[in-house]
C-alpha cells in the first residue's frame, strides 16, 4: 500500500478521538462557558469536582460497583466458558446464545424490566442490585475473552497434569489458573470499564443512594451541562483509558 492512504487512515483513527479530546480540553476552561480555554488553562473545575461530595461519592461508588461486578462476572464466565468450549452436551447451544443475550437486548428494555424486579426484591437503592446487573451485562464480553484463551494447548497441559497424578483442584489451581491469568485480567478490566461507563440500564436503577458517575452525569448532560461535568467526563475517560491500556497489555493482541 502506498504511503498516502496509510497516513489518511491513521488520521481518521486519531480523528475518532476528537470528541473525547475536546471534552478534556473544555474541562480546563477557566470560565463557566462550555468552550475550550482560549488563554490560560485552569484547574478550577477540577477543584470544584473534588470538593463536591456528590461527585466524590459517585466516583467511589462507581469504582466499588465496577470492581465487584468485574469479579462476579469473571467468576461466572470462566466455568461457563469451559462448559461451552470443552463439553459436548445438550444445553450447550442454548447456553452459548444466553451468554451473549445481555449484549443484544436494548438497555432501555432490560432496565425497564429490572426496575420492578429490584423494587419487589427490595434491592432497589442497594449497590448489590447494581453490582449483579452490571456483572450480568459483563458476561458476554468476559465469556468471549476467556473462551479465546481456552486453547487446545491448555487442554493438553491440563490432561498432562492429570496424567501425572494431579487431582482436579490441583490442575485448576496449579495449571489452568496461572495460564489463564492474562485472560482473567483482561476480562476483569473489560467488565470494569463497561461498568464504569454503563449508563442506560443504570439510569433506570440508580436511586440517590446508588448513584454512580454516569447516573449523576447523564441527566445533567441532558438538562444543564456544566464545566464540572466536563471534568467528570474527563475523569471517567481517563480511568477507562488506563484500564484499556492495562487490558491490551495483558491480553496481547486484542484483534483476535
Amino acid at each position: 500500500m502506498t504511503r498516502w492512504p496509510s497516513a489518511l487512515g491513521w488520521l481518521v483513527l486519531l480523528g475518532l478521538l476528537a470528541p473525547v479530546l475536546h471534552t478534556a480540553w473544555v474541562s480546563f476552561s477557566p470560565d463557566s462557558f462550555l468552550t475550550p480555554p482560549t488563554g490560560e488553562w485552569s484547574l478550577r473545575w477540577y477543584r470544584k469536582f473534588a470538593e463536591d461530595s456528590r461527585w466524590s461519592a459517585a466516583v467511589g461508588r462507581s469504582l466499588f460497583v465496577a470492581a465487584m461486578s468485574a469479579g462476579v462476572s469473571v467468576a461466572a464466565a470462566v466455568p461457563a466458558a469451559y462448559a461451552v468450549k470443552r463439553a459436548r452436551w445438550r444445553g450447550r447451544g442454548v447456553l452459548l446464545v444466553s451468554l451473549l443475550l445481555p449484549a443484544a437486548i436494548p438497555p432501555a428494555a432490560l432496565g425497564m424490566g429490572v426496575l420492578p424486579l429490584l423494587h419487589r426484591a427490595g434491592l432497589w437503592g442497594h449497590p448489590l442490585g447494581l453490582i449483579l446487573v452490571h456483572a450480568t451485562l459483563g458476561l458476554p464480553v468476559a465469556f468471549l475473552i476467556v473462551r479465546t484463551h481456552l486453547t487446545d494447548r491448555l487442554a493438553e497441559l491440563e490432561s498432562a497434569a492429570r496424567g501425572l497424578g494431579a487431582n482436579r483442584w490441583q490442575v485448576a489451581w496449579r495449571v489452568s489458573l496461572p495460564l489463564l491469568r492474562p485472560a482473567l485480567a483482561a476480562a476483569g478490566v473489560a467488565v470494569f470499564v463497561l461498568s464504569v461507563n454503563e449508563a442506560f440500564v443504570t439510569l433506570f436503577l440508580a436511586s440517590p443512594n446508588t448513584e454512580t458517575v454516569p447516573a449523576v452525569s447523564w441527566p445533567e448532560l441532558r438538562h444543564s451541562p456544566t464545566p464540572v461535568l466536563a471534568v467528570a467526563s474527563a475523569v471517567t475517560a481517563g480511568l477507562g483509558a488506563i484500564g484499556m491500556v492495562i487490558g491490551i497489555r495483558l491480553f496481547g493482541r486484542p484483534a483476535r
Binding site: A18, L221, A232, M244
Partner: peptide
Amino acid sequence: TAGTLAAVFG
C-alpha cells in the same frame, strides 16, 4: 470503552 460520557459531551 474509555468514555461514552466524554464522547457524547464532546
